[in-house]
């Protein structure tokens, strides 16, 4: 049971009720005002005409999990920074210095991730582009030589 002396709750309650009203109202109104029709392709996943193949329940690459891990850790750091930001006037320059060191370590982690390529996703675009350029350059080079000969 909550203790007899409790925080002021009514702003929070009003906020919660407003959120529910807004979300419910949007669903309610769009239910009546929305256009409803039933055509041949209405129930397709992509109504534009692309046919879906297979299910969406694929095995995900483990790389997504890595990104989620980064998200968790940076999220925790955001929590610490929030507690600093709320108490910013009380902790003064000492707290500022502490949070600067904290953020500097975070930036170091971010640079490390960036350099090691942990944030890279999918096919290596740069490598493909380089190989392509190399190929093109080989062709161009011959042309230039031809022009000079003429």
């Amino acid at each position: 049971m909550p203790s007899p002396s409790y925080p002021t709750l009514w702003p929070f309650l009003i906020y919660g009720i407003l959120v529910l009203l807004l979300a419910g109202g949007m669903l309610f109104i769009s239910h009546f005002l929305g256009e409803r029709h039933q055509e041949k392709e209405t129930d397709e996943v992509y109504e534009a005409g692309i046919e879906a193949t297979g299910t969406a329940r694929l095995l995900f690459p483990v790389h997504f999990y890595l990104i989620a891990m980064f998200f968790v850790i940076f999220d925790l750091e955001a929590v610490f920074i929030i507690s600093w930001a709320i108490a910013i006037r009380d902790v003064g320059w000492g707290g500022y210095l502490a949070v600067v060191i904290f953020v500097a370590i975070l930036v170091a982690v971010l640079i490390y991730e960036w350099r090691i390529g942990a944030l890279n996703f999918g096919p290596q675009g740069k490598k493909i582009l380089r190989a392509y350029r190399h190929k093109i350059k080989g062709v161009n080079h011959n042309e230039v030589v031809d022009k000079q000969n003429n």
């Binding site: 980064f70 610490f80 930001a85 108490a87 902790v91 000492g94 942990a118």
Partner: peptide, 29 residues
Amino acid sequence: NLGKVLFKDFVLPFEVSSILFLSAMIGAI
């Protein structure tokens, strides 16, 4: 109040926690 305590009395553990985050991140990678 938590921010006050954290950034006045427990600054060193707070900075150590950032090292912990760093090691967690590198471990995940």
